[in-house]
Amino acid sequence: MFRRLVSSPLTVFGFLVVFILVITALFAPLIATHSPTEVNIVNKLQPPSQEHIFGTDEVGRDIFSRIVHGTRISLKIGFLVVILSFPVGTILGAIAGYFGGIVDQFIMRTTDIFLSFPGIILAMSIAAALGPSIENVLLALVIVWWPWYTRIVRSSVLAIKNAEFIESARALGANPFRILFKEILPNSIAPASIQASLDFGFVILAAAGLSFIGLGAQPPSPEWGAMLSSSREILREAWWAATFPGLAILFTVLGFNLLGDGLRDILDPKQR
């Protein structure tokens, strides 16, 4: 498996990016050269230099240090949204696929409704209703994300629910929930987990977008989307204030996507 992983340069690149991001998030205070929130008006709008490698913003904060600290926020959101929506979606999908009938209808029609909104629009209106904060963006994204896993898991459950080893468990008189959680779920969860690994990047992207329109992290938080949003007012004077937070988002999403793509190729060669 390891050999196949390193045989694809793009996957290795993705792995490296994610590795660097995790290290950055864990050791942010050590890596940052300045405080992410300390205002220093005298130093405002400094172009990139040795002292401030990504320059400073409109109140003299060091952009590099803000991006480094922002890594924590973005990775945390990506992780929490996936970790919270995955079990919800998976369990509902397994129940729908295994029991079928009216339960299946109810669960699947519910997912239809959620999926009939473009994700960001539904997340936007939920977050707007709850009030602007990073926690509410997180909650909104969880509410938007789970139906995808439900659909994937349901179809994998349907594919194996009449397999022989399931039949034999049933013949032995195991109770349905035991069969579902001990036999079926472990054998049908792979495609959804691959999707989940791809989703980290997209969750981070969506969260940054919501912060960009003022719904997520509020200033002075060093969240990347919020930083981009405030950089627009100084676009004429300070190109660096807009450029670097955006590159951080781009590389993060790209890194997670490449890694997820690579994992899919390894775990599920049929989908290549």
């Binding site: 807009a242 955006g246 781009l250």
Partner: peptide, 9 residues
Amino acid sequence: AMPAFWLGI
């Protein structure tokens, strides 16, 4: 992977 709002800026 592109944040469109950034590309726009």
